[in-house]
Design a protein around this nucleic acid. Structure first.
Lengths: 140, 140
DNA sequence: CTACATCCTCTAGTGGCTAGAGGTGCAAGA
DNA sequence: TCTTGCACCTCTAGCCACTAGAGGATGTAG
């Protein structure tokens, strides 16, 4: 029964110390036992939880979605329809974001390519920003 | 000399009324004249400014970058090297973001495809989140 | 003159942390 | 035993770029 300090938990999970405390404060991570000197003392289960949360955050899931996913994980007999729906919704968001960023990329490339590296009054970067009509992607 | 109210400016520029006031408060948009009753009264130049700002925000430029771009626009004899650098930096950010989102997309697709639509304990969505080793994209 | 939309200022809230102040606990070396 | 020094504690405030709402003034149409 070795006790895991918050610093050690941070090292092992890759989640920063203040962020761990923050997750506890918003109820994402269960409150751990405390040492005699009031210091947090984590179990392996907390580390699994942190890894789960971290991976989900990296995938861009919002804290509320993670909360739902965690309650699902806690009750493995439930239908996984909600988990599926959450992941699908996130996938659609990501696809949309990629599409929109790809359009931005095209516009930025045009701006940068058109820059004559001279003075501002010949600069395509400023010109395109000033006049949206110049821009090839009026959908945004 | 028709006076443009803040509501009219919002309608024409597509920037919301509180956002226009916010831009003024942070010094992005010059303070307009006021009517006798203390209401803002905009000129065409403000509308151009707002259009510029809006377009730049849509392209994801941060407020600080926009501040720089605006001072460049005000002095057309300057070299446009800074504008070029800002746009290039933004382009690199966007490209990086697209790459990372594309990796996420692949992982999410795998999760969703692997979901057997049964119970949570057979659910790939939860499983992948819980164990990063399951995930094909260990670079994140 | 009365509705009623629009405007004004000001404060506080959003998400997901991050930074810092001011103080306590704990392990190792002198 | 004492001290050094790091890691821990709580609490508050700050970050970005807005957004929401309170509470009141102004402007316009009928």
């Amino acid at each position: 029964m070795k006790k895991i300090t918050i610093g050690e938990a941070a090292r092992q999970s890759g989640v920063k110390v203040p962020t761990i405390r923050y997750y506890e404060s918003i109820g994402l991570l269960a409150e751990p036992e405390r040492s005699e000197g009031n210091q947090r003392s984590y179990e392996q289960s907390h580390l699994h939880r942190l890894a789960f949360i971290r991976h989900a955050r990296e995938l861009g899931f919002e804290v509320d979605a993670i909360r739902t996913l965690l309650t699902l994980q806690d009750d493995p007999h439930q239908s996984c329809a909600s988990a599926d729906a959450i992941a699908k919704a996130r996938l659609i968001e990501v696809e949309q974001r990629i599409r929109s960023l790809t359009a931005l990329k095209a516009e930025l490339e045009m701006m940068v390519k058109g820059c004559g590296h001279g003075r501002v009054d010949q600069c395509r970067v400023i010109e395109v920003l000033a006049d949206h009509g110049e821009c090839m992607h009026p959908q945004h």
